[in-house]
């Protein structure tokens, strides 16, 4: 495995929003089938990273590159990235009043896969996925995210991921605002969608979801950089100590190594 080319690689990524520097050199390397968790305090730049990876027009990459299957995708439009197999579950999904979840997802699937799918066939496909994720079928006819509760919106993001079958899923706080049972449902849903060729970057504040979506690596982002990386135990350590203590220990450790 160690010799395999990472299929997704971020090198020294710098990002500005309206001329404010937010990301200051992010590096991350993800192989096929790996799950990476990114944790970090509020405002540290996690969503900025997620939006940049999907191509939000307000986020300007001023340095660095993002390689997907060896190609730098930073110049590509969000819809092209979706067609390449990248998916972002939004921390704050948007409502599209007047457009049913069913119609939206059918249009989306046609765009991403670039092939026709009959209304009847799609409907069956969608209802299967809804059953699998234990989402009430009634949501298919409701306007997308319009009046949905916070938790319902998050579950819709997972449904979209299930339908679009991405190669790389970036999940931005998919667990926030969910009750304990819903975290389990979403966690189990994600693991049932996961397959050996799919990679996940999951952004979260809490280790709970990581028990269902078990990361190979955990990274801690602070002030627009990845300050610390480790295995699953890093998430648990973080939960026990909090960022302050953990990061101080890291600082001390790194000063010591520098001094040594």
């Amino acid at each position: 495995m160690a010799t395999e080319q990472p299929f997704f690689q971020i090198d020294d990524l710098h990002v500005e929003i309206e001329e404010n520097q937010i990301l200051r050199g992010v590096d991350l390397s993800v192989k096929r089938g790996e799950i990476h968790a990114i944790m970090g305090p509020n405002g540290s730049g996690k969503s900025t990273l997620a939006h940049t990876l999907m191509g939000h027009p307000s986020y300007e990459a001023t340095a660095g590159q993002v390689l997907y299957n060896g190609e730098d995708i930073l110049e590509r439009d969000p819809n092209d990235r979706a067609k390449l197999g990248i998916f972002l579950a939004f921390q704050y999904p948007l409502a599209i009043p007047g457009v049913s979840t069913l119609n939206f997802l059918r249009t989306s699937l046609k765009a991403v896969k670039q092939e026709e799918i009959s209304a009847r066939e799609f409907r069956r496909h969608l209802l299967d996925k809804m059953d699998m994720l234990k989402i009430n079928r009634e949501f298919a006819g409701r306007y997308l995210n319009d009046g949905f509760s916070g938790g319902e919106k998050k579950r819709m993001e997972i449904l979209q991921m299930a339908v679009l079958e991405p190669q790389l899923a970036i999940l931005d706080e998919i667990d926030s605002g969910l009750d304990i049972d819903a975290i389990r449902a979403v966690g189990e849903g994600i693991s049932s969608i996961m397959h050996p060729d799919m990679s996940i970057v999951i952004i979260t504040h809490y280790p709970r979801i990581l028990h269902y979506v078990k990361p190979d690596y955990v990274h801690i982002m602070v002030d627009g950089e990845i300050r610390q990386s480790g295995g699953f135990e890093l998430a648990e350590e973080l939960e026990a100590k909090g960022y302050d203590v953990l990061l101080k220990e890291v600082m001390v450790a790194s000063t010591q190594t520098q001094q040594a």
């Binding site: 999907m54 990235r81 972002l88 948007l94 765009a111």
Partner: peptide, 15 residues
Amino acid sequence: GEDQLFYLMSRGLSE
């Protein structure tokens, strides 16, 4: 909204 457009574009739709 730019964010609404971005949301739909991230699902494969052109602008």
